[in-house]
Design a protein around this nucleic acid. Structure first.
Length: 287
DNA sequence: AAGAGGCCCTGATAGC
DNA sequence: TGCTATCAGGGCCTCT
């Protein structure tokens, strides 16, 4: 479900809630996720104090006092729910059921802090947990990932070099985490719309100016989405239960057959399946 | 080496 | 009401 902006919203909220809290108990109810949750997972977390919740790309990184920690990837349907035993409050980042009730089915991991319970729920099981013992190990986990859009190494030289001789379409590159990490199917369509680039264009065919647009608008679209609190597709909520509002800004995503929102453009938004993923674009103004 | 396609899952929704 | 088909925001693996 979540792309970089949604994960960032979860990170911000989660950081406030679990920072400086000590893990008292870990209960793994179902180890089957994309990768099996390691048998040492519980022991790895037990009695550890979380000093920070960080993020890289679509990964949450929970860091302990001793620089060890663990990574959470939410996959398509992973959600995090926090139950505050003092206030009897439930904080949830997403709710598929429009309900503030804690989910019953598909809870995989429960982490208990003093007066606070963390629940990881994932119906489709595309998410995963990974542990690391120190900074070097953490760095290694992300060594095969490309830069985030906000990174200095994601620059015009990097993009133009990368696209040389690349036959694959630009849409697939925006989704390719080895090229740039953090963009998913929604924002890929949005970035290409603002850049006025057709998703089916071969990467090598992009001009220097078009590469600049990819660079600029990748940053802009994601920043704006974070600012707006993430997207609310199927009721995305941040961990305080507040709805994100970026979906109000969608220019093409899920707007099939509607008018193009570019001023004076008479185009209609199309949905073309590219590599088995829907791609929304205006065939009139995206060249 | 790059690129295409299959596949891992459950649940919501649409159409009959 | 119940069946079936289709689709979903991710990304790994295998094959060519």
């Amino acid at each position: 479900m979540p792309e970089l902006p949604e994960v960032e919203i979860v990170r911000q909220s989660l950081d406030k809630k679990v920072k400086n809290k000590v893990i008292q108990k870990v209960l793994v109810k179902n180890r089957k996720l994309r990768f099996m949750i390691h048998s040492k997972f519980e022991r790895h977390l037990y009695k550890k104090k979380i000093i920070k919740v960080d993020r890289f790309s679509k990964h949450l990184i929970l860091i302990f006092e001793d620089t060890a920690g663990f990574i959470i990837h939410l996959g398509m349907s992973g959600t995090i729910h926090l139950y505050d035993m003092n206030k009897k409050n439930i904080f949830t980042n997403t709710s598929f059921y429009h309900s503030p009730i804690l989910p019953k089915k598909h809870n995989h991991v429960e982490i208990k802090f003093d007066k606070l319970k963390f629940i990881y729920n994932d119906p489709r099981r595309f998410g995963y947990f990974l542990t690391f013992n120190n900074k070097t190990e953490l760095k290694k986990k992300f060594s095969h990932f490309g830069p985030e859009p906000f990174s200095k190494s994601f620059n015009i030289k990097y993009i133009t070099n990368y696209f040389k001789k690349k036959e694959k379409n630009i849409k697939n590159f925006l989704l390719d985490q080895k090229f740039v990490s953090g963009i998913g199917n929604i924002y890929a369509s949005e970035i290409l719309f603002i850049s006025k680039i057709n998703p089916t264009r071969k990467a090598k065919s992009l001009t220097q100016n078009e590469c600049k647009k990819i660079l600029l608008y990748s940053k802009l679209v994601l920043r704006n989405a974070i600012y707006r609190g993430g997207s609310s597709i199927r009721d995305f909520k941040n961990i305080n239960g507040k709805m994100g509002s970026f979906q109000k800004d969608f220019k093409v995503y899920q707007r099939e057959n509607l008018n193009c929102l570019k001023p004076k453009c008479k185009g209609i938004i199309k949905n073309k399946i590219i590599s088995n993923r829907s791609s929304f674009f205006c065939s009139s103004c995206q060249k």
